[in-house]
């Protein structure tokens, strides 16, 4: 591994890839480079090196929310200059300085693999938006079908203004509610129960809350926000552990420490949203129709 958890240390192949990527993007045009775009392109370049040259340069990356990112805290960030962005919240990136190739501790083969990968990826994706790159990632490299399914649902919320019925082609059949329910069903079918077992019950409660919101005509903005809440926490609790490579032990330990806090937060967030919708719901009467058997169960468990 090239660096410690503070982003310091020597310069190795992962730093070379990051440095070359940044330089190439910088030379491509004058547009500022977002962190998100930069780290996603680094992942694509690393994948290119692995697939085309069957070589692993030890680049730290992990899946997070709707795409794959380079793990910024796990490489030496002294190569990056990251001032506040002018056109969005966050930072824009530039190479910090000219660094001669000889300053990087890498073999000539690795150097060649990385240069080719960076050239290829920048040519193909350099002018694409972050959303286009994200879409490429979940279409082509999803760790599983569940991630693909939720990313597609998010993309639908982003592209279609559902409340104004500006519809995508598939959206028409059966109306808004049915369409989203079908996508939620796709998520249920593809949820990897064994792999994500620790969030399975919470996931089912989240899924049921989404459906309750839909029944109550919640708008697309609120549905998207509630999807984002779940996916962010899912990423922090499970996804970044399960779908990652070359993350330093110290970083994994820090994530592990945060895990129970993130899980508790998710529980609270789901519960608050459920109560908001339960409060204005009329009981359906199904419980009353099974009340005798239900009460027997409760008394038994009490």
């Amino acid at each position: 591994m090239a660096s410690d958890d503070e982003g310091q240390g020597d310069l190795h192949a992962p730093e070379y890839l990051a440095y070359r990527m940044l330089k190439s993007l910088n030379e491509l045009d004058d547009s500022p480079i977002s962190r998100s775009k930069f780290w996603k392109l680094c992942c694509l370049a690393d994948r290119y090196v692995q697939n085309e040259f069957d070589h692993d340069i030890g680049f730290p990356r992990h899946w997070y929310k709707y795409g794959e990112l380079g793990e910024a805290h796990s490489i030496n960030r002294s190569i990056l200059n990251a001032p506040s962005a002018r056109f969005w919240q966050g930072q824009e990136l530039y190479p910090d300085r000219e660094i001669p190739d000889s300053d990087f501790d890498i073999s000539s083969d690795e150097q060649m693999f990385i240069l080719r990968a960076v050239e290829r990826i920048v040519n193909r994706f350099g002018k694409d938006s972050v959303d286009e790159i994200k879409e490429h990632q979940y279409e082509n490299h999803p760790p599983n079908e569940f991630i693909k399914a939720y990313s597609q649902l998010r993309a639908q919320f982003e592209v279609a203004d559902l409340d104004r019925q500006a519809l995508l082609p598939d959206f028409d059949r059966g109306g808004r509610e049915q369409y989203i329910e079908d996508m939620l069903d796709e998520m249920v079918v593809s949820f990897p129960e064994e792999e994500y077992g620790e969030v399975h019950d919470l996931y089912l409660r989240w899924d049921d809350t989404m459906r309750m919101m839909l029944n109550d005509d919640a708008d697309a903005v609120e549905l998207k926000q509630f999807l984002d809440v779940f996916i962010e926490r899912l990423s922090e609790i499970t996804i970044r552990f399960r779908h990652s490579q070359h993350i330093p032990k110290s970083r994994l330990e820090r994530w592990q420490e945060e895990k129970p806090i993130k899980k508790e937060k998710l529980e609270t967030e789901i519960q608050q949203k459920r109560e908001q919708y339960l409060n204005r719901r009329e009981p359906s009467g199904v419980l009353n129709s099974v009340s005798e058997a239900f009460d027997e169960t409760v008394v038994e468990d009490m």
């Binding site: 339960l278 719901r281 009981p283």
Partner: peptide, 9 residues
């Protein structure tokens, strides 16, 4: 699903 929601409610 209604049954589950009724129980919580």
């Amino acid at each position: 699903r209604d049954l589950a929601r009724d129980i919580e409610q």
